[in-house]
Amino acid sequence: MIVALDHIAIAVPDLEASIKRFMDDFGLTFEGTEDVEAAKTSTAFFPLPPTSIELVHPL
């Protein structure tokens, strides 16, 4: 049984458009972006306590 989630990652084709949609359509607070060179991705974070949503886009 799942009792908690740390985060949910969603792969997106356009990071900027997806950030705007999550803010505008879902009313989520945008926490920032981070490039993860080791994974060759750029990520955007939306806290949604007790978890968070992470949008992932390839670099």
Rank of each mutant, 00 (worst) to 15 (best):
F26G: 15
I53L: 12
F30R: 00
I19N: 04
P50V: 00
E31P: 05
E37H: 05
D6F: 09
A44R: 04
L15R: 02
P13W: 08
P50Y: 13
A39K: 11
G32C: 08
V3T: 13
G27F: 08
S42G: 11
E34K: 15
E37F: 00
V12H: 02
L15H: 00
F45G: 09
F46V: 08
T29F: 05
E54M: 06
L55Q: 02
A17D: 15
S18E: 05
V36P: 04
A44I: 07
P47Y: 07
D25G: 12
A4S: 13
F45T: 09
P58F: 11
H57N: 03
A9M: 10
R21E: 06
F22E: 08
T51N: 11
D24R: 06
H57W: 11
E54R: 01
S18A: 09
D14R: 09
S42I: 12
F46L: 02
F46E: 03
K40A: 14
E16P: 13
V3I: 13
D24N: 03
A4Y: 12
A9H: 09
L59D: 11
A17G: 13
D25S: 10
R21N: 14
A38W: 01
P50W: 13
L15T: 01
V36D: 00
M1E: 14
A9D: 08
L55G: 02
L59G: 02
S18Y: 04
M1I: 07
D14N: 06
D6E: 06
I19W: 01
L48W: 05
F30A: 00
P47R: 02
T41I: 11
I53Q: 12
H57E: 10
S18P: 01
E54G: 08
M1F: 10
L28C: 13
I10D: 05
T33Y: 05
S18V: 02
T29N: 15
P58I: 14
S52I: 00
A39N: 14
I53W: 05
V12R: 02
S18I: 03
H57Y: 06
F46S: 04
P13R: 07
V12A: 01
E54S: 06
D25V: 11
G27Q: 08
V36N: 05
E37R: 02
M23V: 04
L28Y: 01
L15M: 00
I10V: 11
L55S: 06
I10S: 04
I19V: 13
P49Y: 14
A4Q: 13
I19K: 00
A9S: 15
